[in-house]
Simulated assay, not measured.
Amino acid sequence: MSDTILVTGASGSLGGAVIRHLIDSEGVAPGRIIAVTRDASKLGALAEKGVTVRAGDFDDDASLAAAFAGAKTVLIVSTDAVGQPGTRLRQHRAAVSAALEAGASRIGYTSMFSPGPGNPVLFAPDHHGTEEAIRASGIPYSIFRNGWYMENLSMSLPATVASGQWFTSAGQGRTSHVQRDDLARAIAAGLAKPPADSATYTLSGPEAFTNAEIAAMAAEVLGKPIAVVDLTDEQLAEGMAAAGVPAPVVPLLVSFDAATRSGVLGTVTGDVESLTGRKPIALRAWMEANKAAIGG
């Protein structure tokens, strides 16, 4: 298994899509792929295709060591422990150590735009610390700084469409939303055809829009009016609390708008197309294809 590609979070949406594109888009033989998740019983369909399926828990060093054994390229898909300060970074560092112990020749990691100091997103330090740990390992790396998922709009827009109002503190800041499947395709390409040295990719959508522009676009696609209500961060937090948003979640959601306002989420690059040979889907096209999901 000298040329194996291991993907963590294989039962999740992004990890599963990366594996699918490794096989379908990049022609990687299933026998070269190791799929890792906490509960390996969830990966039966991959096992039937010939993918090696292993259980690995980011909170159990011994299980990670066993899961990573023999892997040459390791993709660490960032965990979902965003509401537990310190947990996510500890988990990621454990995965980097396991890759080092396994003798991996490359580490891949799913990061975010501009994760360094100055990024208002509350979990940005987790990504920054993980990137630092990967660089410190001395192993060549491929860091994929993923843009904001278009699918995030499926969680926020339905309530906005239903009320006809979008409360935001993002101001004139822009977001270059990108479809998760386009990210997965790009990551798979980067893993299947790695550069000779280390590389950092910034994976964005083809264009960045303000929330007002996104609201207008959604209104046109759905045929329903949406008014944007500009607030301060403090007003937005108060409104969320009054609407029943759990207290620990409010600061995180507000930090997203603060990051948008600061310009952190508006970067546009051609890295997706460079890796895959095809342009990522445009936001309006995605909306039109997902009307039901966004409130249509």
Rank of each mutant, 00 (worst) to 15 (best):
I139Y: 12
A162C: 07
A237P: 05
D59Q: 09
A17L: 13
E151C: 00
R20C: 10
E151F: 00
V18W: 12
A293F: 01
G9C: 05
L89H: 06
G263T: 11
Q179S: 11
D257F: 04
A124W: 00
A162K: 12
S163Y: 13
V53P: 11
L183Y: 01
M150S: 07
L252G: 14
A98H: 01
P246N: 00
G296F: 14
T52W: 09
V221E: 02
L22N: 09
A188N: 02
L236I: 11
V245Q: 01
N290A: 03
D181I: 02
R20M: 10
S204N: 09
G263C: 10
A219V: 00
I19G: 09
G129P: 11
A189P: 07
G190H: 03
L122Q: 01
A293D: 07
S11C: 06
A133F: 15
Y149R: 00
S163D: 14
A66H: 05
I23G: 10
V228I: 05
H92M: 13
Y149C: 04
M112E: 11
A10H: 12
I139S: 13
T130K: 14
P117Q: 09
G129I: 05
R38V: 04
I294E: 04
F256K: 03
I19N: 12
L222H: 00
T130A: 15
D126W: 08
P120T: 04
L222G: 04
L222A: 01
D39R: 07
S78E: 06
T73N: 11
V51L: 10
M112P: 02
R174G: 01
K49H: 07
S25M: 01
D181E: 10
A136Y: 15
D271L: 13
S13P: 09
L6K: 09
F144K: 03
W148G: 04
E213M: 02
